[in-house]
């Protein structure tokens, strides 16, 4: 009873709250970093250096009036934000934050496939939001978004096959243990795969330079133009939760998860004094920062360039990488 119900439920509760709090601070971090990149100060009014802005924003969104367009489809209009947030949160069930059983909810033998498939459900939120709004720009944006998500999902999934080949397992904990055994983070073994997954991750979370679904200048805000208040906030929660997921998955697959650098070099054993979960969060934070950094730096792609990059560059390279990995695996 205690092991099968109480502890998992507690873990899930802690995890969900941690993710939601992390998202609010992620938004603050993004505003600050972009402000620094543009020689501004960013939010400064609420709390010291604007730190409490992370709490002020959700309060504002919660008390805002919730507007539903008259001609919107009521059922789908309500369902869409939920459908986009729930998959983003469910994925965390199989993400291990540390090697000990305390740090993950569950470790299933199809963990990586589970992450891929559950994130692919998130596209419904976007399509249905655009459709249910019964408005011109959201519909255009949602068609763009879904085409983009599906195209890049293929590229990312294809790339992950080569990682699975290298690790020989689909379990997230197993993949990190495989890196411990080989003594090398897979980022060094599969550098091409890392780059592809990261680019695909940018596209799947609708981040700059692939933020066409939310291109303000052309679409007045994208698929959530007609949304306001907490429903709007749910879309943003989903987007930032997805960024955290991508960072965590990249950390686990390519940069050793909770392992210290060079896990089997004895001379560096003193690094084990730092607990694994600190290594994990430090690495994850680096990727979160890179997400923001890229947004502050790169201009947006044009739509045809985006599609060409996905179909004519990423997918062929991913397939080539699978073949190469297979050949190397057989020869060694």
């Amino acid at each position: 009873m205690l092991d099968t119900i109480v502890i998992p439920v507690l873990k899930i509760a802690v995890l969900l709250n941690a993710v939601l709090v992390a998202v609010t601070f992620m938004v603050l971090l993004e505003r600050k970093v972009i402000a620094w990149a543009q020689s501004r100060l960013g939010p400064m009014r609420v709390g010291p250096y604007g730190v409490l802005q992370a709490i002020a924003d959700p309060i504002k969104l919660l008390v805002k009036e919730d507007i539903r367009p008259v001609r919107a489809d009521p059922m789908l209009f309500t369902l869409a934000p939920i459908l986009s947030l729930v998959p983003a949160l469910v994925v965390f069930a199989v993400v291990p934050f540390g090697g000990d059983e305390l740090f993950y909810v569950t470790d299933i033998n199809v963990g990586l496939l589970f992450i891929i498939s559950v994130t692919s459900i998130g596209v419904y939120g976007i399509i249905l939001a655009g459709w249910a709004s019964n408005s011109k720009y959201p519909l255009l944006a949602s068609l763009r978004a879904s085409a983009q998500l599906i195209s890049y999902e293929i590229a990312v999934t294809m790339t992950l096959v080569s990682v699975i080949l290298t690790a020989g397992t689909l379990s997230m904990v197993g993949i990190v243990e495989a890196q411990q055994q080989s003594g090398l983070w897979f980022g060094f073994v599969q550098p091409v795969a890392f780059v592809l997954v990261f680019i695909g991750g940018l596209a799947e979370t609708n981040r700059a330079p692939f933020d066409l679904p939310e291109a303000e200048q052309e679409l007045t805000g994208g698929f959530h133009t007609e949304y306001s208040g907490m429903r709007f906030a749910l879309f943003f929660l989903a987007e930032y939760a997805n960024i955290i997921v991508i960072s965590a998955v990249v950390t686990i697959l390519f940069w050793g998860g909770w392992l210290r650098p060079f896990p089997n070099v004895e001379a560096l054993a003193f690094l084990d004094l730092i607990p694994g979960w600190i290594w994990f969060f430090a690495k994850m934070f680096v990727f979160l920062y890179i997400f923001i950094w890229i947004r502050a730096t790169l201009p947006r792609y044009r739509y045809d360039q985006l599609m060409r990059l996905g179909w004519k560059v990423l997918i062929p390279v991913a397939i080539g990488n699978i073949v190469l990995t297979g050949v190397v695996k057989v020869l060694l």
């Binding site: 199809v110 589970f114 692919s120 419904y124």
Partner: peptide
């Protein structure tokens, strides 16, 4: 049948039905 469950979500729910939704639109 964990593998099939995941494939069901990935291929059916994440792929085929998105195609239907596209066509409906």
């Amino acid at each position: 049948a964990e593998f099939l469950a995941v494939i069901q979500v990935l291929v059916y729910a994440g792929g085929i039905v998105v195609l239907y939704l596209f066509v409906v639109m």
